[in-house]
């Protein structure tokens, strides 16, 4: 990011506008999915898939994770590990206790 030329920065701003258009389109898709007559499992999968795509666009382009320093990736990798434990440990414990 540091030391980028004027042309490079202007190119980046065009990317930001395109990402915005993509995010707007994906939001419309998310709402459209909710009106489709599909099973809950399919609706959940599709909604989370679209949300993940949108989240990736924000993280990669707006938060510049597409070209970030190694240390940031390390921090995020450790966070992701703890996040998954936090998410699935209580669920696993609950499913175990109900015998499901």
């Amino acid at each position: 990011m540091a030391g980028a030329t004027v042309e490079e920065i202007k190119r980046e701003t065009r990317v930001y506008r395109n990402v915005f258009l993509a995010l707007a389109a994906f939001t419309a898709i998310t709402v459209a999915i909710s009106y489709m007559q599909v099973s809950f499992a399919l609706a959940l999968t599709l909604a989370l898939l679209v949300a993940t795509i949108k989240g990736s666009l924000v993280a990669c382009y707006f938060m510049h994770l597409i070209s970030e320093r190694k240390l940031i990736y390390t921090v995020l990798l450790i966070t992701a590990g703890f996040f998954l434990v936090l998410l699935f440990l209580p669920l696993g414990s609950y499913l175990g206790s109900t015998g499901s």
Partner: peptide, 14 residues
């Protein structure tokens, strides 16, 4: 913004 992207379908649409 990222948090909202996941909150919106989770709370409002599912």
């Amino acid at each position: 913004d990222l948090v909202w992207i996941f909150l919106f379908p989770t709370l409002y649409l599912l």
